[in-house]
């Protein structure tokens, strides 16, 4: 998969597709990253719609998978937020599916991993942060600020505790985005580096020494698949946990 890449980081390069576009002075040209985002959106929609099209009472495999994903996110939301979380379900489900499909598509040869760009993961995390904070203020008004005052702490500690609470609140989007970004980048760099061992060796006819990296690549692709799913899960469950904080205001 890495034949045409010179550097392991080459796969993360953003390349323009078509001409330059701009909006209000900002460059908004279509590129491979945008292409894979739209591919993910289209794939998710088609996958869900085709899976559910028969609306069978006894589901086939595909429909069962669609229903599993629906139930999976719905249960996550219910366990962490309770019934008040129901109205945020489409939003949380969109986050989960978007991250999951972008992660998984990144495993395809010659694809582009949208979630390996910090700006994308940070934008997603920032969206979660802003929406959750907005929900907190809409539901509780200014009372939401008392979220930053730890309960049961002695008064003389508050000048120290409140900044710590605020910082711990503000580092959420950063750890959320860096975690996803770092996992995706690390896995893909590893894949490409190992791939670059396999191809020259294979071409040179050194099949035996090529076998080891092939086995390693197979194992790592399996691991990457797991990590792609797990990171989508982690991103979503943290969204649910933050949502719960905003809805119920308890740490």
């Amino acid at each position: 998969m890495a034949a045409e890449h010179h550097s392991p980081l080459e796969q993360f390069r953003v390349e323009h597709i078509g001409g330059n576009l701009s909006l209000g002075g900002y460059d908004i040209s279509f590129n491979n990253s945008a292409l894979w985002m739209l591919i993910a959106v289209a794939a998710i929609t088609v996958f869900m719609l085709v899976g559910i099209r028969k609306q069978a009472v006894v589901p086939g495999r595909w429909q069962a998978l669609v229903e599993f994903l629906y139930d999976f996110v719905a249960n996550m939301l219910k366990e962490n937020v309770g019934n008040e979380g129901r109205k945020y379900f489409p939003w949380v489900f969109s986050i989960f599916m978007f991250v999951l499909f972008c992660n998984l598509f990144g495993l395809l040869p010659n694809s582009f991993t949208v979630t390996s760009h910090i700006i994308v993961t940070f934008a997603l995390a920032l969206m979660v942060f802003i929406i959750v904070t907005a929900i907190g203020f809409i539901r509780h008004g200014l009372h939401f600020l008392s979220f930053f005052v730890p309960k049961g702490a002695p008064a003389w500690l508050l000048p120290l505790m409140i900044p710590i609470e605020i910082i711990s609140y503000f580092i959420r989007p950063m750890s959320l985005s860096v975690r996803l970004f770092a996992n995706m980048v690390a896995g893909h760099v590893m894949l490409v580096v190992l791939g670059s061992f396999v191809l020259p060796l294979g071409l040179a006819g050194a099949y035996i020494s090529g076998i080891v990296p092939v086995a390693a690549i197979t194992a790592i692709i399996g691991l990457e698949f797991l990590i792609a799913c797990l990171q989508a899960y982690v991103f979503t469950i943290l969204t649910c946990i933050y949502l719960n904080d905003a809805v119920h205001m308890n740490h």
């Binding site: 908004i28 945008a34 985002m37 959106v41």
Partner: peptide, 14 residues
């Protein structure tokens, strides 16, 4: 900027 723009489009569409 292009990634942010297209991410917004894609996510809102999704």
């Amino acid at each position: 900027s292009p990634q942010l723009f297209w991410l917004a489009i894609a996510f809102i569409l999704l």
